[in-house]
């Protein structure tokens, strides 16, 4: 049994959901057209992850085994809708930029995966830490991919123009670029973390 500190740290590097577990690929590719968008998406996912992990851990003893997946889905979907509404009201430009990927948080395999693998078997505090760790790991991965794509494709970072825009191939913020950047970053991460 990992101690609590390890639970938190696990999701950030060792079992990073994007680079190692290869979960949540759709938003990792679809929302990383800029560092800001990647970061925003990561934070939204983190929020849902922590909330659903906590609630599921709280009610786990009342859920009959055969209906646990539908039960988890209802919990997760509700929190996603809540986050959706809050974003629409308080961060409308991010809401517009992330578009359909916000409701798609509900099918982000990370959340259902952690609910099944961790929250349904651990106490509330550890489930919170796990959600936090995985969420932070996902967020920094998304922000990194977004930053690379933004620099290479738009010559900017977090919206600040670097003055090199006219030299940069736009393809990096378009679909093929997403695949390439993620692929190469994954190779890099795995080589570095193996040392």
């Amino acid at each position: 049994m990992m101690n609590n500190w390890k639970v938190l740290w696990n999701g950030i590097i060792k079992q990073n959901p994007a680079f190692v577990l290869v979960l949540g690929m759709c938003p990792t590719l679809g929302t990383t057209t800029s560092a800001e968008n990647g970061f925003g998406m990561g934070v939204a996912t983190l929020a849902v992850l922590v909330l659903s992990n906590v609630v599921i851990s709280l009610i786990k003893q009342w859920i009959p085994d055969k209906v646990r997946i539908p039960a988890f889905i209802v919990v997760i979907a509700s929190f996603v809708t809540v986050i959706e509404l809050l974003m629409q009201a308080y961060v409308p430009s991010l809401y517009k930029a992330l578009g359909v990927f916000i409701p798609l948080i509900v099918v982000n395999c990370i959340i259902l995966g952690r609910a099944e693998a961790f929250a349904s078997k651990n106490n509330v505090w550890r489930s919170l830490l796990d959600g936090l760790g995985m969420g932070v790991g996902f967020t920094w991965a998304l922000t990194l991919v977004g930053a690379v794509r933004e620099v290479l494709g738009n010559g900017a970072i977090f919206g600040y123009e670097l003055g090199i825009k006219s030299y940069m191939p736009l393809v990096f913020v378009m679909a093929p670029g997403g695949f390439f950047v993620l692929g190469y970053l994954m190779i890099l991460f795995n080589r570095l973390s193996r040392k």
Partner: peptide, 12 residues
């Protein structure tokens, strides 16, 4: 996966 991603990029 990395290979798959790069292949997918070319397909895209």
């Amino acid at each position: 996966v990395s290979m798959a991603l790069i292949t997918a990029g070319m397909l895209a």
